[in-house]
Design a protein around this nucleic acid. Structure first.
Lengths: 339, 339
DNA sequence: TTGTATGCGTTATCAT
DNA sequence: ATGATAACGCATACAA
């Protein structure tokens, strides 16, 4: 397979290279006749323009970079990665952009993505999780005036997309209140994490709005995993002041809580209501199935794609941020009939 | 941020562009002195070569394409995508290749990946699932002599990587036999699917080896999902000749089987053993936890990456195929003490 | 409307 | 060991 270039087409069509180029870009100042002729020949010769040459001439790669830190086994990404990518692709694909995935190893300086991707112009813009987009990197990208979007809130000036965790906290807590629960605890998360702060704030807001005084012992920080949830629940459920329901920082925390309740012979949902952030495929298979907060990760990708493309098209645009609404999925773990 | 090119460096260092280029590529015929000098200036001026220009000159993109059909909601990919990508990246990353993800929409001919990615030279090679790599495409890629690897067996001549499904069938069945089960059924899969054929063949081989005659009623084809498993199990477990154990085409099938057994009051594992292909995160959370066959999807990515890079480096290499061994994870759903 | 010439930022082939 | 110059394949300002 020998490659056929714009010159070959020009020669075969008896026109200049520039004419072929203009036909390629459907320039209005080329006659329909020559367009047809040139296009026919392109077809015959099976011509496809070289994206690299086009990129060099146009000074753009038609490539979006998605940065991931694959060294951490992020359960979250692991689950939703595919959806996020699908969302991004659904908006950049039709604009003829491709998605370049790049592994950010913070410990491999020679291959730092700033050089590998950004400064070498392999991509025209990047999307990254806020865990890889440190403040330092953010500042550097701003200085380079390079378009980027963070998935997850970061400090301004920068554009980001995230789920409304405060609202999420309010929704889960509000749902428990509606179901007749009133002694509500919150398990999981570390105090310095903004995601904990947001979610817990929503929790507190809902309680306050309901006129319920918060029991500070009922906010238990810790690892947001199964074991953490298990331990916290074990303590909480055996204490003197036992809550009648729990909001969990993640479904994994909830799995631990479920386990603890089971061992202690506490019935869910009649004696204990359990509601969790971060719906997982497993959530509907637990016994009882878990009430949780679903986030539409596909639309997360869509939104970040749009924000990024806007920025690439108009670099003078001010930075924007977007809060997406989560969706409550009520299941048996909280559905009791208030007597 | 004004871009700095090789010419700027040459000017600043008082050498020719070609010298700078040679320094860039660490040519042995440049003196250490000039190398040092030029490199210093590169540092000072914060120079990074343009990957696009390099690509044009070298006629290579340093880009690997990963093709996915995002229109299908493949549960499988959804779960393992991240791992596969991680595996691929771990081998191509150190070789300075990036991963370009591309959505293959079979219904969008104008943007066919053959043109968008391959013929436009956006990527130097591709990796794709066998569901997107149709025979037709395979032939065309062979004709173009374009390097590609299939994840999942396809017809030769082509390189592919897959798990050994025959072996997997033998392993699951053999495990059941070891646990003292002898009346083993097989649920799930369609007869025309090679993946069913392979797995079922392994099943049959193990039975034959154990001298057990196969009951053809105990091979039940159908959708490999929860509902399919549920229905098949319901029939099987209420029939006159009831099996004492079941090999399931997927963990979802097993979930359905578990449900059916529960409803019929059949105890697992004492009255019924259940073993399944395709370990999922959920598998260890069911009651009882599910014995299943784990596949190391990361190493699947690694292998396909290696095969592809070999092919890119030496296009004359004959096509190869690789069968990866699955791993049995014994759990309570099959662990009974044979009396 | 079409053609000419030059640029995009590298690499590679020759000379020197 | 270094430099001049021609590719690489396309876009574009300017001429014609």
């Amino acid at each position: 397979m020998m490659k056929v270039t714009i010159s070959d087409i020009a020669k075969a069509a008896n026109v200049a290279k520039s004419t072929v180029s203009k036909v390629l870009n459907d320039s209005p100042k080329i006659s329909q006749d020559t367009k047809r002729k040139v296009r026919d020949i392109m077809q015959q010769m099976n011509y496809i323009p070289s994206s690299i040459a086009t990129g060099l001439a146009r000074q753009s790669s038609l490539n979006i970079g998605l940065l991931v830190d694959m060294s951490k086994e992020s359960e979250f990404l692991n689950q939703f990665f595919y959806n996020i990518i699908g969302g991004i692709e659904s908006v950049i694909g039709p604009l003829n952009y491709e998605l370049t995935l790049s592994n950010v190893q913070h410990d491999r300086p020679e291959g730092h993505f700033l050089n590998r991707l950004v400064r070498s112009k392999r991509v025209d813009g990047i999307i990254a999780n806020n865990s890889v987009l440190t403040e330092e990197l953010s500042i550097e990208l701003n200085r380079l005036q390079f378009p980027y979007i963070s998935i997850g809130e970061i400090i301004p000036p920068a554009s980001w997309v995230d789920f409304d965790n405060v609202l999420g906290g309010r929704m889960l807590t509000g749902h428990l209140l509606e179901q007749g629960y009133s002694a509500i605890a919150f398990i999981g998360g570390q105090q310095f994490e903004t995601i904990f702060t947001h979610r817990c704030n929503g929790f507190l807001q809902a309680l306050q709005q309901a006129g319920i005084t918060v029991n500070s012992n009922w906010i238990v920080n810790g690892q947001s995993d199964e074991h953490g949830g298990y331990q916290a629940a074990l303590n909480l459920l055996q204490s003197d002041e036992r809550p009648d329901s729990i909001v969990c920082m993640s479904s994994y925390v909830a799995f631990g809580v479920l386990q603890a309740a089971k061992e202690l012979g506490i019935n869910v949902p009649s004696q204990l209501g359990i509601a969790a952030f971060d719906e997982y495929p497993l959530s509907r298979y637990t016994t009882p199935p878990l009430t949780s907060l679903n986030i539409d990760t596909f639309s997360l990708g869509v939104s970040s794609g749009h924000l990024l493309m806007d920025r690439i098209r108009n670099s003078e645009l001010p930075s924007r941020s977007l809060l997406l609404e989560p969706e409550l999925i009520p299941r048996q773990s909280t559905l009791r009939n208030p007597s």
